[in-house]
Design a protein around this nucleic acid. Structure first.
Lengths: 241, 241
DNA sequence: CCGCGGTATTTTGCATACTGAAGACTGCAG
DNA sequence: CTGCAGTCTTCAGTATGCAAAATACCGCGG
C-alpha cells in the first residue's frame, strides 16, 4: 500500500489533536506531531476563509499566534505548499494561493477523469458493510442539507466521495483523488448551499448504481454529477455567507 | 514540483554551500535552496538504487554524509514521504519505500488512465516548435537504444512522456502524472533494456498521431503503449545489470 | 535455559540562535 | 520636489542544542 502518510495526510478532520481517534491502529495514543496540528490549524483557517487568498503568512507570526516555534510551522507550510494551498516565495514568505480561472477549470477537469474511474471500480459491487456505510453517509449529507449547515454539507460531501474512492480498491487512485479533492473542497465551499440539494439527490442515484453492481451506470452518473458540480463552481459562488 | 536537473547530482563534499554560483549566465544568482538539493540528491540515490528498498535512513547520518545540517535533510525527507518514496516511521527514522505487487499494479493502472487522457489532449495538434521538440526527443531516445545506454533510455523516456503531458495544456494533470511517473520510472529502470526497443517504435507512431492531430488514435496508441510497458514491468526485470 | 527489568543508545521532535538577503524607509543632494 | 543612496527592519534559510520516546542490549533472577 502506498501508505501516503497514514498519519500525515489526514488533512482535514478539523481541529486539535484528535488523539482519541486511534484511526490507524497505532498501539498507544501518540502525542500527535505538532507539525500536524499546525498544518490542520492553518488549513482550516484557509478553508474557512479566515486566511484570505493572497494573504501573506510569516512563519514567526503564525508561530507566535499558535504558541509554537517556527520549526513546526515551517514544516506545515512546506506541506501546504505541496498540497497547493499556499505559494512559498523564495525570500519573502508564504502567500495563500489564489486559484486562477484556468487552474480551476483544469482541476475540475482532472477530477472528472479520476472520480469517474473510481466510481466505475467501486461498483464491484461493495460488501454489505460498505453498502451500509454508503447509505449512512448519504443520510448524513441529507441531514446537513435539511439543517442548512454548510460546514456539514461540505464535510459530508468530502466523506462520501472519499469513501467511494476508497471502494475503488486502488490506493494510488485514492491518493491522487485526495490531492485533487482537498483543493476542490475549497472551491466547493462557496457553492455548497446552492448545489447541495441537487448533489445529494444525485448521490443517492449514484449509490444505488454502485451497490447494484452497475459500473457503467455508476460511471455515467458520477460523470454527470461531477460535471454539474464543476459547472456550479464555474458559474459562481453563494450570494451570502 | 521536483525541479529536477536544477540541482547538481550529489554533493558529498563537506564544506558549506557553494553560494553565489551563477554558473551559466542566469540573470541573478540564485541561492538554490539546500532542501531542494538534498531532496534531489536523496531521490537520485533512491532511483539509481544506491539506497535500496527497505533501507534505513537516519537524518543525522544523511546530514553528515551530505555535509549539511539535519534541518534541510529533515525537510527533504518529509517531502519525499509525501511523494511516496520513503516511509517515515514516527520514532525510528525513514525507510526507503518498498512497493508491493499490488501497489505496482495500481500505480500502472492509474498511469494508463492519466497518460491516455494527456495524449488525447496533446493531439490538439501541437505547434511547429513543439512538433520539432517531440521528434528531437524521439531521436534522443533512439540514440540511447542504439548505444544500449540504460540511463539515457530511462531519461529520454521520462522526458518524452513529460513533454507530451505538458502539451496537454493541463497543469494539474501534468502535476499528477509527474507524481506517478517518477515512481514508475523507478520501476521502469529495471526493464528499460528489454523494453526500450519496442517502446521507441511505439513512441514514433504516437508522435505521428499527436502531431497529425488525431486525438482518438493518440489515445489508442498511448493506451497500448502504457499497457505494454506495464506488462513488461509486471513480468520481470532485466536479467543482467 | 528462559524471562524480566533496567539502562544505554539511537533517533526523532521541537526550540532557539545566527546569518544573509530583500524590501522599506529616511535623509540628503540635485 | 524628485531621485538616489545608505541604513534599518524583517524574514527566510540554516545550524545547533536539548529533551522525550522507542528500541536494543545487558545482566540478573528464577
Amino acid at each position: 500500500m502506498t501508505n501516503p502518510g497514514a498519519a500525515e495526510s489526514r488533512a482535514f478532520s478539523a481541529g486539535k489533536r484528535s488523539r482519541a481517534r486511534k484511526a490507524n491502529g497505532n498501539r498507544v495514543a501518540r502525542p500527535a506531531p505538532l507539525r500536524e496540528v499546525v498544518h490542520d490549524a492553518i488549513l482550516e483557517m484557509i478553508i474557512d476563509r479566515t486566511l484570505r487568498p493572497g494573504q501573506h503568512l510569516a512563519e514567526g507570526e503564525l508561530a507566535a499566534e499558535l504558541g509554537v516555534s517556527r520549526q513546526p510551522v515551517r514544516e506545515a507550510l512546506q506541506r501546504l505548499q505541496t498540497e497547493g494551498w499556499i505559494d512559498l516565495e523564495p525570500a519573502q514568505g508564504a502567500f495563500v494561493h489564489t486559484p486562477t480561472e484556468q487552474e480551476t477549470v483544469q482541476l475540475l477537469s482532472v477530477r472528472v477523469l479520476l472520480e469517474t474511474h473510481a466510481a466505475e471500480l467501486a461498483a464491484a459491487p461493495p460488501s454489505e458493510a460498505d453498502t451500509a456505510r454508503l447509505w449512512e453517509l448519504q443520510r448524513a449529507g441529507e441531514a446537513a442539507v435539511a439543517a442548512d449547515d454548510r460546514g456539514a454539507m461540505v464535510k459530508a460531501n468530502a466523506e462520501l466521495h472519499a469513501f467511494i474512492t476508497e471502494l475503488s480498491g486502488n490506493a494510488v487512485l485514492q491518493e491522487l483523488i485526495g490531492i485533487v479533492n482537498r483543493r476542490v473542497q475549497w472551491l466547493y465551499t462557496s457553492v455548497a448551499r446552492q448545489r447541495s440539494k441537487d448533489a445529494w439527490a444525485e448521490h443517492a442515484e449514484l449509490i444505488e448504481a454502485i451497490t447494484g453492481g452497475k459500473p457503467d451506470r455508476a460511471r455515467e452518473l458520477m460523470h454527470a454529477h461531477i460535471t454539474r458540480t464543476a459547472e456550479a463552481i464555474r458559474t459562481g459562488p453563494d450570494t451570502a455567507h
